[in-house]
Design a protein around this nucleic acid. Sequence first.
DNA 1: GTCTATACGTCGATAGAC
DNA 2: GTCTATCGACGTATAGAC
Lengths: 205, 205
Amino acid sequence: MPADTSDHAEPPRQRGAYAKGIARRQEILDRAIEVFAERGADRTSLRAIAREVGVTHAALTHYFGSLEELLVAVYQESTAPERQPSSPADDATPVEMMIESARINRAIPGLVQLYSTLVATALEEGHPAARTFATDRFTRLRGRLADIVREQQADGRIRKDIDPDAVAALVVAASDGLQTQWLLDGTAPQHEALALLDRLLRPES
Amino acid sequence: MPADTSDHAEPPRQRGAYAKGIARRQEILDRAIEVFAERGADRTSLRAIAREVGVTHAALTHYFGSLEELLVAVYQESTAPERQPSSPADDATPVEMMIESARINRAIPGLVQLYSTLVATALEEGHPAARTFATDRFTRLRGRLADIVREQQADGRIRKDIDPDAVAALVVAASDGLQTQWLLDGTAPQHEALALLDRLLRPES
DNA sequence: GTCTATACGTCGATAGAC
DNA sequence: GTCTATCGACGTATAGAC
């Protein structure tokens, strides 16, 4: 499900935050990421995370505002470009990019569950932080993939008779949906289905 | 996201349940479905549902065991075959079937959010009811679609050089993922992307 | 500014009265 | 079979110590 090709926006600078506070926030965030990576997505309550990190749960809300915003921060930081072990490979097709991204994210326990939870939360009302996160991610990701599709259509590597925006949405949806199916039973032909989509998009086909 | 083509298993008969209890359970369930259809997926706590239905929250756990099982029952019942307004149309392609199913389900407020919540819950540990629901649904749906793909490959309506199981997984994933994107911003080219996939699967293409 | 202590209201679940 | 009562845990908010 997560499959970002890395989602970096500007750093989350907040008004009135000084170096000390930012450093401490980062310290807590790093520790929280370790906790997630070690124990998966369970024990994701504010109090449980605070216990592991070694602070009070109120300290977490002080730095992050709410549980929701903390979870978003953990996800963003976990998938930040500088944490990605491999380089993006410029000649990859959109589907190949999503495959590689999904492979990387799947290695971090709990990350995909965290992503799913955030997206599901975003669909409910009254959760602005999750909503903003999910909307931004999809919008940016689709835009980036559509650009790549246009480039590769010009290069003759993707069929020219298809709409780049539709392709982008389709690739993102397929990647997310297949990740979910694969997590649920492991027998879902995730890789085969993505390879199939990749093939269908090529000119000779 | 929901897109069942209707998911009927055997009725949820439980050991030691007598006619009276079953009738009452059904009565509560029908009322709960109305509440969901009227007010959407919000107010989905046990207590809120109980308040609307006119019983105590303890009565709900008595009949359904847990909130999770109640939510699964509400979803199953809401998408039951006898509630589907239109007939399935035998000559539809798998993608067309998912489009039609999504259209029907989207008309019921809160149903798609409910589905998303159930799937996200299923990915976490310690939620057996949601896990069973999601796993069964995906397995059954993929199996049914794969059969249809095989039929239509034989009829020459779908390309013969692609794996039916991979197609089934891909179609389900695309349908679910696009529904999510569409719910989040409404500008996602849901229909265009599905139409594209439908076209890519056809022989002449 | 940073952080603890504490309290509030709500949650899902359960025990036991009737 | 259905209720009341109660439990522990949750997210959030606030007061005030440092």
